[in-house]
């Protein structure tokens, strides 16, 4: 609506329709926000402060974390909650600012697709990550040093 600047532009309230997800969206943002504060600061502490601190982060560190179901679940929760939280926030901003209906639809679609792609890829990596895959003999040199000899 450009009612701010265009004088005498037509204007009417239209009737609402469809299911209303706004209440659930609003509650999700608050609930996931609280959980994410714990998850993210826990994540930052374990990675950046505890043990050797930030210098301890390498391929082996990540491989070691994902060998444990605890960190798999932790990272999975963080991935899903944060991406849906962020995507819903972007959706809200688009609703607030997009001037045309079509542009809003396109932008919301783009946000949904990118969030969905990241969630699917991230989930796939968390559960299928294998630091020491079986490889052909000439590729053995590419494996990390901590892998048992094949």
């Amino acid at each position: 609506m450009s009612t701010v600047d265009a004088p005498r532009s037509p204007y009417a309230r239209t009737q609402r329709s469809g299911t209303n997800w706004e209440k659930w969206g609003w509650m999700y943002m608050r609930a996931s926000g609280v959980v994410l504060v714990v998850l993210i600061f826990g994540h930052l502490f374990v990675n950046m402060v505890a043990g050797e601190g930030v210098r301890g982060i390498d391929f082996a560190f990540v491989a070691g974390k994902w060998a444990s179901p605890f960190w798999q679940v932790w990272d999975l929760l963080m991935l899903w909650l944060a991406l849906i939280h962020g995507a819903n926030g972007m959706r809200t901003i688009i609703n607030d600012y997009s001037s045309s209906v079509t542009l809003g639809k396109v932008l919301r679609g783009a946000v949904f697709l990118s969030a969905a792609a990241l969630i699917i890829l991230g989930t796939l990596v968390i559960f299928t990550f294998d630091p020491c895959p079986s490889v052909s003999p000439e590729q053995l040199g590419l494996l990390p040093s901590f892998c048992p000899p094949q």
Partner: peptide
């Protein structure tokens, strides 16, 4: 500001 952009 929400009313400005969304008169609904």
């Amino acid at each position: 500001p929400v009313f400005w952009t969304d008169g609904q």
